[in-house]
C-alpha cells in the first residue's frame, strides 16, 4: 500500500509540475527549459524556510510559488524578448545558472550534500507526517490547481496564448501584446513549478541539486508531449502513465545494471515516437507578416 501511495504522490507532483509547463509550452508553444529551475527554487525555498525558520505549511507553499514567480519575472524580462529557438536556449542557460548556484552556494544550499531533515509541518491540527494524509492534502492542492489551470486554459489568457503560439503577428494586430501574454503564462507556469517543488521537498524530506537536472526537464517535456500539448487531462494522465510505466520493470527479473538504463530507454523511445508522429502539430511552422 505504501508503495502505491508513493507512486500516486509522485504522479500528482508531476501533474502539478507538468500542468504549469503545459500553459507556456502546451498553449503558447514556449519551450521554457528553465521550468525545472522554478521547481528547484520552490523546493529549496520550502527546505530552507521549514528547516531553518520553522515556517508553516501554507507559508512554505505560497512563498515557494512566489519565489519561483520572481525568478520567472527576471528571466522572462530577458529571455522572452527572444523568439522561439533562441528563447529555448536562453531559458536553458538560466536553468544552468540555477543549477550552478545550487551546487556552489554552499552556505545556503549545502551544495551537493543537499538539505536533509526537511520537516512536514502540521496544517493547523492536521498532521501530514503520515504519507496517506500527505496524499490527501496533495490531492486537494492538485484538484484546486487543475480547476484554476482549466479556467486559464479556457479563458482569454488561454485563447491569446494559443493564438500567439500559432501566429503572434496576427495577435499583435488585434491589440494584444505577445510579450505581455508570454510573461503572464511564464509567471503562472512558474508558480505551479514552485508549489510542486514545495510538495516534493516536504515529501522526500531531503533534496539535492541532482533532482533538478536537465533530465528532469526532459521528463516533464515528455509528459506534456505524450499527453498532447494544451490538454490538461492529457498531461495529468501522462504523469501517472510515465511514473507507473517503469515500475512494471520491477517485476521482470533484470540485472540492476540494465534496469536503470532500461527506464531511460523506454522514455526516450516513447518521446521519440510521439514527436515523430505528431511533429506537424507539436512544432507548427511559424507564420510571419
Amino acid at each position: 500500500m505504501d508503495y502505491l501511495i508513493n507512486l500516486i504522490i509522485f504522479s500528482l507532483i508531476y501533474v502539478l509540475l507538468a500542468g504549469g509547463f503545459n500553459i507556456s509550452f502546451g498553449l503558447g508553444r514556449l519551450l521554457n527549459l528553465s521550468h525545472v529551475a522554478g521547481y528547484a527554487i520552490g523546493a529549496y525555498t520550502t527546505a530552507l524556510l521549514s528547516t531553518d525558520y520553522q515556517f508553516g505549511f501554507f507559508s512554505c507553499l505560497i512563498l515557494s510559488g512566489i519565489f519561483s514567480m520572481l525568478f520567472s519575472l527576471i528571466i522572462g524580462a530577458i529571455s522572452l524578448r527572444l523568439s522561439d529557438d533562441y528563447f529555448a536556449i536562453g531559458s536553458l542557460s538560466f536553468s544552468f545558472v540555477i543549477s550552478a548556484l545550487l551546487i556552489n552556494w554552499k552556505s545556503l544550499t549545502r551544495g551537493v550534500l543537499g538539505i536533509p531533515g526537511i520537516p512536514r509541518p502540521d496544517i493547523f491540527t492536521f498532521s501530514i507526517s503520515d504519507n496517506l494524509n500527505f496524499l490527501i492534502v496533495l490531492s486537494i492542492a492538485v484538484f484546486l490547481s487543475l480547476f484554476f489551470l482549466n479556467s486559464v486554459f479556457k479563458g482569454p489568457l488561454g485563447r491569446s496564448l494559443k493564438a500567439q503560439g500559432e501566429y503572434s503577428h496576427a495577435l499583435e494586430a488585434l491589440g494584444v501584446s505577445s510579450f505581455k501574454i508570454r510573461m503572464y503564462s511564464f509567471i503562472i507556469s512558474s508558480f505551479f513549478a514552485g508549489i510542486s517543488g514545495c510538495f516534493f521537498a516536504l515529501y522526500l524530506s531531503y533534496i539535492d541539486p541532482s533532482s533538478f537536472s536537465l533530465s528532469e526537464m526532459v521528463f516533464v517535456l515528455t509528459i506534456v508531449i505524450i499527453g498532447q500539448p494544451g490538454s490538461l487531462l492529457g498531461s495529468s494522465l501522462a504523469s501517472f502513465f510515465l511514473v507507473f510505466l517503469p515500475e512494471s520493470l520491477r517485476f521482470i527479473e533484470l540485472d540492476p545494471g540494465i534496469l536503470g538504463p532500461m527506464r531511460q530507454l523506454i522514455y526516450a523511445v516513447i518521446l521519440f515516437s510521439t514527436v515523430y508522429t505528431r511533429k506537424a502539430s507539436l512544432f507548427p511552422i511559424k507564420r510571419t507578416v
Binding site: 494559443k162 500559432e166 501566429y167 503577428h169 495577435l171 494586430a173 488585434l174 494584444v176
Partner: peptide, 18 residues
C-alpha cells in the same frame, strides 16, 4: 491572419476581449 487551430468563435472572441 486567422488562427486556424482555433474555432471561428474563438477567433472573433479574441478581438472582442482585446
Amino acid at each position: 491572419g486567422i488562427f486556424r487551430d482555433m474555432t471561428v468563435k474563438e477567433n472573433i472572441l479574441i478581438a472582442l476581449e482585446s
